[in-house]
Structure formats: structure tokens, C-alpha cells
Design a binder for these strands. Structure first.
Lengths: 216, 216
DNA sequence: GGATTACGCTACGCGTAGGTAGCGTTTGTA
DNA sequence: TACAAACGCTACCTACGCGTAGCGTAATCC
């Protein structure tokens, strides 16, 4: 029963597409009334807010139900259990960052960081990131979600490095993982771990140092 | 009553010293039997294990009591409440790292990291660090404990930088906080956040890049 | 050696959170 | 229009964790 109900949200979209393709519905599911997308969106949005406000540990279904106006029983019709909703909400937070192309490593890094910094400096995002990181240490499934989230967000840096290698700014045999850590690390530690501010001048200085390390 | 009992552990040591100085005991506390240091140590040790195994969120007094063999009521005689024990346990984890002095920035960093890396790579320490980091986002008091813990552990890097400045390897006007982030960041991200291994060759390469960035 | 008190043990009260069940109402589909 | 199912609501059960209280026992100080 619970397994059925958490399948329905996928079906909502799936049946639409199947309908267009004239694929017959699975026998037995008459689909008198599909799960409402509105309820799903409201719950999902509230879930993200709750994570932001109370962290992963303080993430409760009662809080989501209260904040969203969606009944707890309805939430259980859309998601299997607490973790299902939690992972779903976290997965939806990942908004891809744009990849700049200014023609120089320093310019690209600066442009990228100008977009990323305000976002990861935000207290809400900071709480979410640290919460997910800590929870991912215990939960392998969440660790996967977290890893994907990080990789997806930091993908532009890989592209920036490849571009720099193409221009000859950076040695072609430079280990990408190493370079990624060298670029992300200082900002992550300063902003997320130490919660220190980072003004424009310091940002420039930091990028100068990183570029100095990476260029041939 | 609760306030009295959590004062006693300090008194245990305090009264000893006061006794040597012939300071009269405060009237009213007869101290027929002091709180046992053994129970305190067992509980503290178990608390650290529980943090390591279940994280900050999974840190419960029942677990500590069960694992240590010290009764919960006894724990409450030694500590005021859950957080008091939690902070106490976390505070005790900080073991100062030695400060190397090899004569070069690269040598010092390498020597320091060879000590630090196995420790922060350890799954137990990793869970503890991420747990404390996440919990510190919500709890200002824990944030203070966390900050002290980090500063104390990373203090040798500041010394290493000062030595390098003295030798002229590093520009004297280089911002220390910036340099700290540049040094700690890559390792923290690679080992703690991404949970990637770091072999000796990569460690050397990483240090080379960092030194290249910092030296004049 | 006697008074005092920490000790471990057991039980309890209280609040919170996950998850379930049943109800009357509403809404989309056929 | 009729049916089926999602909806919100309320109540409930269970488990867990914090913190307290009282007990008999054992250790320690005077």
C-alpha cells in the first residue's frame, strides 16, 4: 500500500506521457484522481524551508505539514517515508551554476566565484550544506545525493580548468581532482567552515594565489 | 540541587589544592565522598565513542550510560545536562599537534600534514568533525567550542607561516587568514568533504602547488 | 567506626516524532 | 452525472530521549 502510493507521483507525469504515446495504463490502476502536483510542490518547498531553518536533524514531517498546509497523511501518499521526502527535497535544491568563458583562468574563476560566493555564504545554504555533509557521513544513500549535488555544482570548474589547459595556461597533466580541491577548498573552509566574510579585495587576492599555484 | 552536583567535579580537584593551601572548605559541603574520577573518565570516554559512532544527533545519554557502565543518574551528578557532557567530551578530543621546524616551508607543511592527515582521514574523526560543524551552525555555544577546536589544532600552521616569513620565503604582508584557508582548504575538502584518499605522491604535489602560491 | 554521600539500578513523567487509521469532503476522470 | 480516490483533519500507537526520584549498597572522609 505504502509502496503503491509513493509510486503515484512518478505516475502523474508518466501517465501523461504514456497517454500521448497511447501506451495502455497498467491494469488495476484506474486513476480516478491523480495525486495533485500542487500539494507535492507545496510540501517540497516547505521541506526545503524546514531544512534551511532547522537543519537535517530538525527536519520533521510535522513541521513540513504545518508549514506547507499539506496534511501529513497526504505527504505519506506522495513519499514513502521521512527520508524519501528529505532526499527528494535536497535533490531539488541543486541549481546548476553557469560556466563563464572570459578567456583567462583568473577571469573565469573570478566570474564563477562571484556567482557562487553569495550563495554558499548565505546562512540558510550554509546550514543546509553542513547538515547534509554531516548526515551523509552516516547515511550512504544521502552520501550519494550529496556527492552528486557537489559534483553538479562544481562542474563548471572542471570546464574552466580544461579551457585553461587548452590555452596552455595550465599544465595538461595536472590532476583535475587535485586542482579542484585547491580551488574549492580555500573558499569552502573560509566561508562554510569558519564562517568568515570574504570581501572583493580578499577574493581577488585568493584567486591570484590559486592561479599562481596552477599556472605553468 | 542539579547546580550543586555539577559543581562537584571541579571541587574534587579544587578541594585538594585548597587543602594544601589550608584554605577552609565552604561551610555546608562536608564532602563525605567525592565524585569518583573513574566514573567521570569512563563516561567521558564513552561519550566520545558515541559521538564517533552515531554523530552529534545520535548522541544520547542513555547510549553513554549503557556503553560506559556508568548509571545515568551518576552522569547527571557530574554534568548539568546533555549539552554539558557533549561539550565536555568534544573539548577533550582536541589534542594539540606538534609544530615542526625543518627549515623550509615545504618541509614544515609536509611534516605537519603527515601528522594531521591520518587523524582527519579517520572515519571516526571525520564523522565527529562534520557532526560538530553541522551542529555548530545551529548552536552558538557549540560554535565557540568548534572554533576553538579548529584554531587550536591549526595553530602550528600559523607558526610555520611566521617562520617562512622570517626566512623571507613568504611575503611579510601576506594575510595570515588567507594563507591558512589556502593551506587547510584543499586537504579539508578532499579528505573530509569528498572523502577521497590522499596518497603520498598526491600529498607532495598538493604541497608543491600550495608552496608555489605562497612563496615570493 | 559512624555518618555521609556517591554509586548503580529501576521506574516514571513528559514531550516529541514517525507512522497509521478512519472520517467526511472535494475533485478529477470516465 | 457517478464513481473512485486524493484531500485535510483528528486521533491514535509506538518508540525514544531528557531529566527526576527513590531505593539499597558501597566507598570515603572525619
Amino acid at each position: 500500500m505504502g509502496q503503491m502510493s509513493h509510486l503515484f507521483p512518478w505516475c502523474t507525469l508518466g501517465f501523461l506521457m504514456l497517454g500521448l504515446l497511447n501506451v495502455p495504463l497498467p491494469s488495476g490502476s484506474v486513476m480516478a484522481r491523480p495525486l495533485s502536483e500542487e500539494a507535492r510542490q507545496k510540501a517540497l518547498s516547505a521541506a526545503q524551508t524546514v531544512i534551511a531553518e532547522h537543519g537535517i536533524a530538525g527536519f520533521t514531517l510535522d513541521a513540513v505539514a504545518h508549514k506547507s498546509g499539506v496534511a501529513k497523511s497526504t505527504i505519506y501518499r506522495h513519499w514513502e517515508d521521512r527520508n524519501d521526502l528529505l532526499f527528494s527535497a535536497i535533490g531539488c535544491m541543486v541549481q546548476p551554476f553557469p560556466t563563464p568563458n572570459t578567456g583567462s583562468l583568473a577571469g573565469d574563476l573570478r566570474a564563477f566565484m562571484c556567482v557562487v560566493l553569495p550563495i554558499i555564504s548565505d546562512p540558510v545554504m550554509r546550514r543546509t550544506m553542513t547538515g547534509v555533509l554531516a548526515a551523509a557521513t552516516d547515511d550512504p544513500e544521502l552520501a550519494r545525493v550529496h556527492q552528486q549535488m557537489m559534483e553538479q555544482r562544481m562542474a563548471p570548474i572542471t570546464t574552466i580548468l580544461d579551457l585553461a589547459k587548452g590555452r596552455g595556461e595550465v599544465a595538461r597533466d595536472l590532476d583535475t581532482e587535485l586542482a579542484l580541491a585547491l580551488i574549492e577548498g580555500p573558499f569552502f573552509v573560509k566561508l562554510v567552515v569558519k564562517n568568515q566574510p570574504l570581501d572583493d579585495a580578499t577574493l581577488d587576492e585568493m584567486i591570484d594565489l590559486i592561479v599562481k599555484a596552477l599556472t605553468t
